[in-house]
Design a protein around this nucleic acid. Structure first.
Lengths: 345, 345
DNA sequence: CTGAAAGCGCTTACAG
DNA sequence: CTGAAAGCGCTTACAG
C-alpha cells in the first residue's frame, strides 16, 4: 500500500500550493470557499490525516493530556484501586469530549516522573491521581511548579499554594458518615485509616469524623483509631488490632471501602455480626460496595463530575485562564452495613 | 521561567555541534566517550528532554500505542465494563514496560475510529478492546487492514484471517464451567447470554457449554438459552424470562459475571435460593465476583497475562515480526454460588 | 485570496 | 570521531 498522503500530495492534486492546502484543511476563511471544499474533498478521498508530529512540532503544543496514576507501592501489581479506575473512565471521556487525547501512565510513587510528559512535549498538561503518601512526592511537585508545568492534582488541598488541587470534600464526607452513625444511636465509633498528615485525604476524613463526634459532645478516643492503608488486607488487619485491643465499640467508620470490606471480613471471622453488633460505614462507593455482604453504606464521590472538573481545570491552566481550588461535595449512600433499615438490591 | 532547552543550547554549552549532541544523547558509540558523558551531564543539568514531536517526525514513528476501548452502546456512560478496566490496567503496565506510551480512548462502536491514531502518526499500533457486537465493525476492521495499520483485537478469532486476535479460550471456559455444574449433579443447566454469531465470545462460551452437555449425553435445550448482553440489568431480565417460561432448571451458566449478578438478583427476588435451588456460574471473575452473595463461581481470564500478550503482539506487528493467533487458557474459580462446598472469605 | 519561504527540533547520511 | 546540511510535514508571517 502507498505511504501516507501528505499535504503536498493534496496540493498536487488540487493544483494549489501546499500552504493553501494547509489553510483549507484548517478551514481558514482566508481560502476561497469553493477551493476549500475541493481541497477538503480530496483530503477525504485520500484519507488524509494531518501529521500530528509535524503539526505539534510547529504549533508547540500537543492537544494531549497526560494522566499519571500514582499507586501505593504497597499495592499488589494486579489490583488497581477501583476508585482510580472509575476516575480514569470519567477522565478519559471528559478529555475526549474536549478534543484532547489522553496519555495514561501508572507510576510508582518512587519513580522519577516529575519531568516527563510535558517536558518532552508529548502533553500540554498533566493530571495527577494518587492516593498514597503525599509527603513522598512533595518535592517532585515543587519541581513541576518550578518548571512551569500545567498540572492539577486530585485530592486534598496542598499546603503549597501553587499546587492546584481538585478533590472531594473529605472533611464533609467524614462528618456526614459519622453523623449518620451517631444518628443511628452509636456512641463508640472506631475509625480505621491513616490519620497522619502523610495521607491528607484520610486525615481529612478523620478530622470530619472527629468534628462530628464533638458536635454531639463526644470526645474522639484515640484508642478507637487505627492506621490502615487503602487495601482490603490492611483493613482486615486494622480491624483485628482493634478487636484485640479489647476496647468497646459499636460502629466503625473506615477511610475507604476497601478497608471496610477487610474490616467486615475480620469481624465476621470473629463471629461479630454486621450491622447488628457493629455497624460499618465505608468511603468511595466503589462498584464492589453494593455487593458486599452486608451491602456497604458509604460516602460516594462523584467520579463522573470530578473527572470533568479535573480535565476542565488543566485545560484552563493551559489556556492561561483563572482556576481555583475546588472541593466537590460528597454524599452518603445508605445501604445495610450501617444497620439503617434499607432493603438492598 | 526560561523556555525549554534544546539540543542547540546543549551544543552551545558543550562547545560541540548540535549533531554531536544528538548522537551523544542517543548514546552513539560514534561519539567519544568523554564527550558523550560531558554532554549527557549538561543535558541532565538543564533538565533536557528530547522533543518527541521533532524526534517522531524525523523518525517517522511515535513509540506510542493506542488502546481503543469500544463499549456496548447500550452500556450506561458511567459504568465501564469492569473486565475492560482490568485489562486496561495490565495493558498500561505492559506498554510502559516496553518503553512505549499509551493513548487511551473510549469509543462508541458507532463512531468513526477506523483511521485515526495511526494515520495521524500519533500511534505506531492499535489495540482494540471490545465486547459488543463484532459484526457492526467488521467493515471498519477491513478498512484498517486495507490501510496496513498495525493492530490486534481482543476476543474471539475473527473470520477475516488477516485480523490478528488474541483472546481467552471461550470454548474451553464454557466447557469447564458446564462440566463443573454437571459434576455437581445438575442436569438442567440454563445458559444466559447471546448465542448468536453477533457476539462471538459469548457464542463460543455457549458452544463450549453445549459440548460439555453433549459429552455426557445431554442434548442442549434451546428453551434453556436466553439472550443477554453484558450488563447486570440484562442478566436480571433474562433470568426473569427464564423463570417465567416455566421450564425446569437447576443451574445457570451465564456468559458474564455481570449477567450472573443480575440473574442472582432476579432469583432472590422470586425467593429462589442460590445455590440450594439453582446453582450459578459466571464468567470473567471481575472484582465484584468474590463479593457477590453468594460469592460467584466463575471462569477467570488472566488479564495480567492477556495484557502482556496483546502489547507484545502489536509490537511484533510493528517490527514486522511473525505473530500468530493465540488462545489463552482460562480457569475455573470455585466459590459458593455453584453449591460446591467451599468456604468463602 | 494565494504562494514562496522560514522554521518548529530533531536524526542521520555524507564528507572529512 | 565530528560538523555542515538536508529533511521529516506541517503552520504562518510576509508579500503580493
Amino acid at each position: 500500500m502507498a505511504s501516507k498522503a501528505t499535504s503536498i500530495d493534496i496540493a498536487y492534486r488540487a493544483g494549489v500550493s501546499q500552504s493553501t492546502v494547509s489553510r483549507a484543511l484548517r478551514n481558514s476563511p482566508l481560502v476561497n470557499l469553493e477551493t476549500r471544499q475541493r481541497i477538503q474533498a480530496i483530503a477525504k478521498e485520500l484519507n488524509y490525516k494531518v501529521d500530528k508530529n509535524a503539526s505539534n512540532l510547529r504549533m508547540q503544543n500537543s492537544h494531549t493530556l497526560a494522566l499519571l496514576i500514582c499507586e501505593d507501592p504497597t499495592n499488589d501489581e494486579s489490583m488497581i484501586n477501583p476508585f482510580f479506575l472509575s476516575m480514569l473512565g470519567s477522565i478519559t471521556r471528559a478529555t475526549a469530549r474536549q478534543g484532547y487525547d489522553l496519555l495514561v501512565s501508572f507510576q510508582q510513587l518512587s519513580t522519577d516522573w516529575h519531568a516527563d510528559y510535558e517536558d518532552s512535549n508529548k502533553a500540554d498538561g498533566i493530571i495527577l491521581l494518587g492516593y498514597g503518601d503525599y509527603m513522598d512526592y512533595a518535592h517532585k511537585l515543587d519541581k513541576l511548579i518550578e518548571k512551569n508545568t500545567h498540572f492539577v492534582i486530585w485530592g486534598a488541598e496542598h499546603n503549597n499554594k501553587a499546587v492546584l488541587s481538585i478533590g472531594c470534600d473529605n472533611h464533609q464526607g467524614g462528618f456526614v458518615a459519622t453523623e449518620h452513625l451517631l444518628g443511628l444511636g452509636h456512641k463508640h465509633i472506631a475509625f480505621l485509616g491513616d490519620s497522619s498528615s502523610r495521607s491528607p485525604e484520610f486525615r481529612d476524613r478523620y478530622l470530619g469524623h472527629v468534628d462530628a463526634l464533638q458536635s454531639t459532645g463526644i470526645e474522639a478516643d484515640t484508642q478507637l483509631q487505627h492506621d490502615a492503608i487503602n487495601t482490603e488486607a490492611s483493613g482486615y488487619h486494622a480491624a483485628n488490632v482493634l478487636l484485640d485491643s479489647g476496647v468497646t465499640f459499636d460502629a466503625i467508620f473506615t477511610a475507604s471501602d476497601l478497608i471496610a470490606i477487610g474490616a467486615i471480613r475480620a469481624l465476621k471471622k470473629r463471629g461479630v455480626l454486621v450491622p447488628e453488633q457493629v455497624a460499618v460505614v465505608g468511603y468511595d462507593d466503589i462498584p464492589v460496595a453494593s455487593f458486599a455482604n452486608p451491602a456497604l453504606t458509604t460516602i460516594k464521590q462523584d467520579t463522573q463530575f470530578a473527572g470533568e472538573i479535573l480535565v476542565e481545570s488543566v485545560l484552563k491552566l493551559i489556556r492561561g485562564q483563572e482556576v481555583s481550588q475546588r472541593l466537590i461535595k460528597t454524599h452518603l449512600v445508605v445501604r445495610s452495613s450501617c444497620g439503617a433499615n434499607v432493603e438492598d438490591n
